[in-house]
């Protein structure tokens, strides 16, 4: 399944400036692996020991994957995967 992945500005140095990537995958984990295959520099920035770093948020069509099945969250046709820093906001 083809899916669009949105890359935040802070990570674009590792994608040669690209803000969006088109990759294949049926779960969030597969999608991220495909992203890392294309841009190896992203793996260590987003993950640590195979899991998402604690200050990375990933959304599938606007929904935080931690409210779903995490990296196992399935992807439907037309979904958009967004990676964002988790440290914004608050009091």
């Amino acid at each position: 399944m083809s899916v669009t992945v949105k890359i935040p500005t802070q990570l674009r140095a590792a994608t040669g400036g690209q803000a969006e990537l088109e990759v294949e995958g049926s779960t969030v984990g597969e999608v991220l692996d495909a992203v890392f295959d294309a841009h190896g520099g992203l793996r260590d920035r987003i993950t640590q020991d195979g899991d998402l770093r604690r200050f990375v948020n990933v959304y599938v069509s606007g929904e935080d994957i931690r409210f779903q099945q995490g990296l196992e969250t399935s992807i439907n046709d037309g979904d958009e995967v967004t990676i964002l820093p988790a440290v914004a906001g608050g009091c």
Partner: peptide, 26 residues
């Protein structure tokens, strides 16, 4: 909810030349 607002603002902060007090000026 607030977390939706926050996600939107994180995205807006990337595309607008604004000082988001609790995003890019956090």
């Amino acid at each position: 909810n607030y977390d939706d607002v926050n996600r939107l603002c994180t995205q807006l902060a990337e595309t607008h030349p604004w000082a988001f007090v609790n995003v890019n000026l956090r």
